[in-house]
Design a protein around this nucleic acid. Sequence first.
RNA 1: CGCGGGGUGGAGAAGUUAGGCAUCUCGCCAGGCCCAUAACCUGGAGGUCAUCGGUUCAAAUCCGGUCCCCGCAACCA
Length: 515
Amino acid sequence: MKNNKFYITTPIYYVNGDPHIGHAYTTIAADIIARFNRMLGKDTFLLTGSDEHGEKIMQAAAIDNMDPQAFVDKNSAKFEITWDNLNISNDNFIRTTSKNHKLAVQKSLQKLFDKGLIYKGEHNGLYCIGCEQYKTEKDLVDGLCSDHQKKPIEVKEDCYMFKLSVFRNIIKNKIETDELQIKPEDKKNEVLSFLNEGLKDISFSRKIKWGVELPWDTTQTAYVWPDAFLNYITGLDWNGEDKAPPMWPAEVQLMSKDIIRVHATIWIAILLGLELPLPKKLFVHGFFLVNGQKMSKSVGNVITPDDLLKNYGTDGTRYLLASATPFGHDGDISMDKFDLKYNADLANGIGNLVARSISLTKKMKDAGIKLSTNSFATNNSNQDTWGDQIFQHEIHSAWEDYKKNLDDLQLDLSIRVVQEQISFLDNYITTVKPWELIRDNNPKTGEVIYNILERIRHIALMMLPFIPETADKILSAISLDPEQEKQKGWETFTKWGGLLTDAEIKESAILFPRK
RNA sequence: CGCGGGGUGGAGAAGUUAGGCAUCUCGCCAGGCCCAUAACCUGGAGGUCAUCGGUUCAAAUCCGGUCCCCGCAACCA
């Protein structure tokens, strides 16, 4: 029954700071994929949310002189506002401080504990007295705390451990056989070679207050792994019962490359321990570099979602991020490159194309000519290379390519298919010269303009997952309602001829002003 | 020999799984068009596909060596 469902998740973001471009990238990509699957008619659910427990939150809250709960309320709201500004169509926003989530985490931990998968152990940490906090190896420079230039002391602390090690072989097998897909291929290889080195048991709890209390030992709270990862199911209103909700498992879990290992090991082991189904696919995308450098506050080259929104608007930002780089690989970005691409693809491309098409239509109407589709069927004997057969075939194969690329999550490639359609139509207009047809009152005029507008309809629908507001504007301009179009079903709206010949064509404002 | 990825006209990328005319976007040059947001269309210049060797009728692609660059190495999208 649930063959036709599509569940996609983003990671939940740690809300000790503001949303940055990487969060936006993952979330926009997930939204595009979700919107595409809704277009296909699938029962689609998009989940994102925030990770709100842990020591760093406590510290950040203390610096702001705030209660942790008030602090995460404030910060997770910033994320929700950003997603609103980016027109993200998430079906839920899961917060790890929500009551239902905490309850489900506790039930799950108890279950793992009862099965003997959690045992009492020790956590060895590097503690910096200056910072009053634990450091990881990565935090250290030459073995010293970067803030205090002191060597941290080794501290042993009681905690509960999770038997991750026992899951190595089964996880390896599931990945090798693609029962659990990891894409792209190089990331799968990386995970497999990591698994070859073996898995160690990991700490599952800490002695800090800000977290989910362990049911059997309230002096400890859940560490990030059981707390954060379970959001992917609690986000579906799961309360920890034995059976997963019908939407689970996820078809796609999106993430960036820095967290693939923990997902492919710890998260999967938790699911195996709870005897819940595994996600179908973990898809890993790359990082952004700015002019070849890693984005960092100290270098001062950070580009924020708000910077992009201010410059390019909602749809401009969505489009530029989605097409900036091959999906699944690192990419180099800069505001200069964004400006170029904005002008080339959005202003000069789709924006100008729509403007010239609508203007031609208006001139045609002023000349008293109507849209028509009549004579093509009887007109096949002519030598016109722009005949309707070619025209229809072209659009059909374009839809196939488009769908194939999006099914494979190749966002950048599907955008390229649409760009080809735009070029094709620009070329058609230049070649057929509708302004001459109108002037000469040529009997083909109505058909030619129909062809142009019908093609605009297809382009707008292809763009719908990427730039929904703009697609909406374009469809409205040719008297179509996006929701009604989608209702017709994929097979219908991708066919040639969806535009009505009596459609009222409205002028629309400039879609993307040039930079 | 820790693991993984990469080196393709001036810039950014595709193509490598499956060998078969080196492709796309931006930039540059020349022409065209006059519907459109100084837009759009056509043509052109520019590449020994990092490098050396091998296999083959044929190599960016397969094999071996060398030189560079970049990630990861347990809670940074």
